[in-house]
Computed example of a mutant assay.
Amino acid sequence: MAEIKVVTIGRHYCSGGSDIGKLVAEKLGVKCYDREIVEMAAKRSGISMEEIKKYEESVLNPLKTPITLFGKPKEDITETIFAAETEVVMELAAKEKCVIVGRCADFILKNKVKTLNVFVYSSFEKRMETAMTKHHIAPEEVESRLKKYDKKRADYYNANTNKKWGEKSSYDICLDSGKLGLELCADIIAHTVKTVK
Rank of each mutant, 00 (worst) to 15 (best):
V24A: 02
K31P: 00
S177H: 04
P66S: 09
E143F: 02
S123Y: 09
T86I: 06
V113F: 04
I108V: 15
S58E: 14
M49A: 11
E129R: 13
C98S: 12
A25N: 09
K74N: 13
D19T: 15
K134P: 01
K164V: 15
V120M: 12
H191Q: 02
E143S: 13
V99L: 05
T115L: 04
S177W: 04
K152Y: 08
M49Y: 07
S15P: 11
H136M: 10
H135W: 07
E140Y: 11
A41I: 12
N61S: 12
T192S: 13
N111G: 10
F82N: 13
V24W: 00
K22N: 08
D155G: 00
I137Y: 10
T130A: 08
A190F: 00
K151Q: 11
A105V: 12
Y121A: 08
V30F: 10
M1Y: 00
A25G: 10
I173T: 03
M1K: 05
V6Y: 01
S122W: 03
A159C: 01
E143G: 13
E79V: 12
K110M: 05
T130I: 14
I137E: 12
S58L: 11
E91W: 00
A159N: 06
W165T: 03
A105Q: 09
S144L: 09
G16T: 13
S18R: 15
L28P: 07
G181T: 04
N160D: 04
M1F: 01
N117F: 06
G181D: 01
V193H: 03
S18G: 15
C98R: 07
I4K: 11
T78A: 14
R127D: 06
E26G: 03
V59P: 00
I81Y: 03
N162V: 12
I137G: 11
L116F: 01
V142W: 02
I189N: 01
K194W: 00
A190K: 02
N158F: 07
K72L: 11
A94F: 03
K179P: 00
P73F: 12
Y171W: 06
I4G: 09
A154N: 02
G10T: 14
L69S: 10
E129A: 08
M132A: 09
L175K: 05
R145D: 08
K147D: 07
R44P: 00
I81F: 04
R127E: 05
S48L: 07
F119R: 10
I52G: 11
K148E: 14
Y149C: 00
I108A: 07
L109P: 09
N158G: 04
I37V: 15
M128N: 11
G46P: 09
G178W: 10
K22F: 03
K95P: 01
G71C: 10
